[in-house]
Amino acid sequence: MKRISIAISLISILFCSAILTRALPEDEPEFGYDEDSANGPQYWGDIKEAWETCKTGQIQSPIDLSTNVVQVIPKSGSLKYWTYNPQYATLSNRGHDVAVNLRGDAGSIDIDGSSFFLQQIHWHWPSEHTIDGRRYDLELHMVHVSPQADGTNKTAVVGVLYEYGSPDPLLSRVEQYLVDIPKENEEESVGEIDPSEIMSGKMFYRYIGSLTAPPCTEGIIWTIDKEIRTVSIGQVELLKNTVLIPYAPRNARPLQPLNQRNLRLYVSKNKPLY
């Protein structure tokens, strides 16, 4: 009987070990935002060869949008550069953030005569970009792509910054789904979303940078709306409670060097600069 008990105990230990071994890869994210962690932002370029640009790239994002280096570009007429359409969307928990995925033609933005089509919207907390050193409470990214003749895509991202205040209409629209969002990498329909409600376009910054998460691909055209919106504390906390625990405190990459890049602020001649 003693030998049988020992054998059962060993089998139980091995079984539990196998479960733990399978669980570890899911519990430990590939990359994180804790600067004291072995998979923190300063180590992203060492985790995978495909992510080397996170370490070696010279035009990385995010950056500080500083009035000391910005070149002001006055433009006559309207600064509206987008045409968006209401479109059905799904909400997904990607583990490190929450994304709204647009289905069908949600519209586009025009950059130097090229159309970039809106594909997805997601959030970072706190903001990744800063303005004159000030970091805001939330940043929304609208990801656009422009198909090229060689089969590749160019990417343009529109960023919107938020400070605590009144609730944000877009998050109010989807927060009922955030309460009971499906598991990581699953999607849930949220009905129709109108991206035109997000933009103002009175003034905006523009520069060439990178994705702010691995693989940190460069050549991304960034447009940051200068108008600061408001979001409630509860809405940001709801976003935090949705993602995996390692990402809950923050999912914002630290600022990257400007490295002599051109930073422009487009303003209407009919609008005051500040």
Score class of each variant (00 low, 15 high):
Asn259Ala: 03
Gly234Asp: 07
Glu184Gln: 09
Ile181Val: 07
Gln71Asp: 13
Gly234Glu: 07
Leu211Tyr: 10
Gly40Glu: 07
Val98Trp: 15
Ala252Gln: 03
His141Ser: 11
Ile198Phe: 10
Leu263Thr: 00
Glu192Leu: 12
Asp36Val: 03
Glu128Val: 12
Gly95Val: 08
Gly40Val: 00
Ala7Leu: 08
Asp27Tyr: 06
Leu273Tyr: 04
Leu273Val: 13
Lys240Ile: 03
Glu227Asp: 06
Leu170Trp: 03
Thr130Asp: 12
Asn68Cys: 05
Ile8Glu: 08
Ala248Arg: 03
Ala89Asp: 12
Tyr33Asn: 06
Ala89Phe: 12
Gly201Gln: 08
Ser268Ile: 05
Lys154Met: 15
Ala7Met: 06
Tyr266Ser: 10
Tyr177Ala: 07
Lys48Phe: 08
Asn85Trp: 11
Arg3Thr: 15
Ile73Arg: 03
Leu211Lys: 04
Asp105Lys: 00
Gln256Phe: 09
Asp180Leu: 11
Arg261Glu: 03
Thr53Ser: 13
Ser66Met: 04
Leu244Ala: 10
Leu238Tyr: 10
Asp110Thr: 15
Lys240Pro: 03
Ile228Phe: 05
Tyr88Gly: 13
Gly191Met: 07
Val174Ser: 00
Gly159Phe: 14
Glu186Tyr: 13
Leu263Met: 02
Pro182Asp: 10
Arg135Pro: 04
Ser9Gly: 11
Pro62Met: 06
Gln148Trp: 05
Asp27Pro: 00
Tyr247Lys: 01
Gly191Gln: 10
Asn270Met: 00
Gly151His: 01
Leu10Lys: 02
Ile233Gly: 08
Ile73Ala: 02
Gln71Glu: 14
Thr90His: 08
Ile111Tyr: 11
Val98Leu: 14
Trp125Thr: 02
Lys202Phe: 04
Glu49Trp: 14
Gly45Val: 01
Arg3Leu: 14
Val72His: 12
Tyr266Asn: 11
Trp123Ala: 15
Asn93Cys: 12
Trp44Asp: 07
Ile131Val: 13
Glu30Asn: 02
Ala23Ser: 08
Ser200Cys: 06
Asp34Asn: 14
His124Trp: 10
Gly219Met: 14
Tyr274Lys: 02
Asp34Met: 07
Arg250Tyr: 09
Ser146Arg: 00
Ala7Pro: 05
Thr53His: 11
Glu187Gly: 15
Asp137Ile: 01
Val157Cys: 12
Ser17His: 05
Gln176Thr: 05
Ala149Lys: 02
Glu197Lys: 09
Asp27Ser: 09
Thr56Ile: 10
Gln176Ser: 09
Pro86Leu: 12
Lys75Ile: 08
Leu138Glu: 04
Ile73Asn: 06
Gly45Met: 05
Glu28Trp: 14
Ala23Glu: 04
Ser66Thr: 11
Asn259Met: 09
Pro74Asn: 04
Ala18Gln: 06
Glu35Ala: 14
Glu49Met: 13
Pro86Arg: 10
Asp105Gly: 00
Pro25Phe: 02
Glu188Lys: 15
